[in-house]
């Protein structure tokens, strides 16, 4: 087990398929189409500041909604009978096993102008409301797709809290509310943190949800990158520059988040 040769395949692999590709992104970001050094691409990213602001804003709203909806759910799940909990968790994970394109597509059919929801609204006399191709629809799609990623880590952490601590607090006269605010809430913060990163990162960088539910008017960073590599405005240099900025942005966000997470428990949400 001490032999070094066992490392060689893996080191080679991550070198070629993780490090070199990222170096290529860096290289492309700082060169023009004929390969000369330039910082023009990075400067041009500034033209898309509004897209960045919109992505981060929508991602933040979706993350906040996920915390608001997900925390009580995780708490409620941890309080039901243990033999039911396992079943409930499977039930929670089941939609995640369905491809997210299909889940988003389902919302497309519900929200579209003569879709189910609008038919319902017309039936009860409110009349047709424009639901699809709005930023609200994009946020809804994000929340729907990523909510389980918020619930699961929080649930895992809450259900691991040592019951004796709660009992001790109760013995010492703490009310239910006090037990929650002084014990459960502080101890569950690492779960909330890993939930936030698990929701925020994919939400900010998505390009499918915005395309399917947001129409052309709600372009996000992901769409912008996709357009530079496979879409209408082919420009891998600019695309690389945008990717680089996105990467750095997310690393900064994660760095800030980790400041709140003293116990270094960022993998607390991994299930299986």
């Amino acid at each position: 087990m001490k032999s070094k040769s066992i490392n060689i395949p893996y080191i080679l692999w991550i070198g070629i398929f993780i490090v070199v590709p990222l170096i290529l992104v860096l290289l492309f970001a700082f060169t023009d189409s004929s390969g000369n050094f330039t910082i023009e691409n990075i400067i041009n990213v500034g033209n898309y500041a509004s897209v960045f602001v919109r992505s981060i804003w929508l991602g933040l709203i979706a993350t906040v909604i996920c915390v608001i909806l997900g925390y009580p759910m995780a708490y409620a799940l941890s309080k039901i009978a243990p033999n039911m909990q396992e079943f409930m968790i499977v039930l929670l994970m089941l939609p995640m096993w369905m491809n997210f394109l299909l889940r988003t597509y389902a919302w497309m059919t519900i929200l579209e102008n003569n879709g189910l929801l609008n038919r319902l609204l017309m039936f009860i006399g409110i009349g047709q409301v424009n639901l699809i191709n709005t930023s609200g629809a994009v946020v809804l799609g994000m929340v729907y797709n990523f909510l389980p990623y918020m619930i699961l880590p929080i649930y895992t952490i809450i259900s691991r809290i040592d019951n004796r601590i709660i009992e001790a607090a109760q013995d010492l006269g703490a009310s239910r509310r006090k037990v929650f605010s002084k014990i459960i809430l502080p101890l569950s913060i690492p779960g909330v943190i890993s939930g936030i990163t698990m929701v925020f990162v994919p939400a900010v960088s998505t390009f499918i949800i915005s395309k399917m539910l947001g129409g052309g008017a709600n372009i996000l960073i992901g769409d912008l990158i996709e357009m530079q590599f496979l879409g209408s405005s082919y420009n891998p240099n600019l695309g690389s520059a945008i990717s680089l900025v996105l990467m750095i942005l997310i690393m900064i966000c994660m760095g800030i988040m980790n400041q709140f997470d003293h116990e270094d428990n960022s993998m607390g949400g991994m299930i299986i």
């Binding site: 080191i11 991550i14 070629i16 398929f17 993780i18 490090v19 070199v20 590709p21 990222l22 290529l24 992104v25 492309f28 990162v201 994919p202 900010v204 960088s205 390009f207 992901g222 990158i225 996709e226 590599f229 891998p236 695309g239 690389s240 990717s243 996105l246 990467m247 997310i250 690393m251 994660m254």
Partner: peptide, 23 residues
């Protein structure tokens, strides 16, 4: 090595996809 290992999990998927496409 662990930091490099975690990169594909930490990075946005689209960045991983784009970087591999460039490669």
């Amino acid at each position: 090595v662990m930091n490099i290992t975690n990169l594909p999990m930490v990075n946005p998927e689209i960045v991983t996809g784009v970087s591999l496409m460039l490669l």
